[in-house]
């Protein structure tokens, strides 16, 4: 597993965790404006990092959620529990 891949994955995890936290918070406090602005900024950044990751290492999601170039690389190892 190359270093660039591990770095990108870590960045994606950090951003997505922030998005998870904001989701839970806004579920109970939907009226606040700042968390919503943060959420949208994070979501955009997250999407661009995931696009970059997928271009280099294959799809992060099945079921039509990611496009797949050339060949069906979804099945490629390592799976998350092999890292």
């Amino acid at each position: 597993m190359d270093r660039r891949r591990m770095e990108l994955l870590r960045q994606i995890q950090e951003l997505q965790f922030a998005a998870v936290e904001l989701t839970l918070f806004m579920d109970i406090h939907p009226e606040q404006k700042q968390p919503l602005a943060d959420y949208n900024r994070i979501a955009e950044h997250l999407r661009s990092l995931m696009d970059e990751y997928e271009k280099l290492y294959g799809p992060l999601m099945p079921f039509g959620q990611s496009t797949v170039e050339n060949r069906w690389s979804w099945t490629d190892e390592p799976w998350p529990w092999q890292l």
């Binding site: 099945p62 079921f63 979804w74 099945t75 490629d76 190892e77 799976w79 529990w81």
Partner: peptide, 15 residues
């Protein structure tokens, strides 16, 4: 799925 032997079978059980 964790102890499936290949990428394809890991994928299939996950999906």
């Amino acid at each position: 799925r964790y102890t499936m032997p290949t990428g394809k079978t890991k994928a299939l059980l996950t999906d």
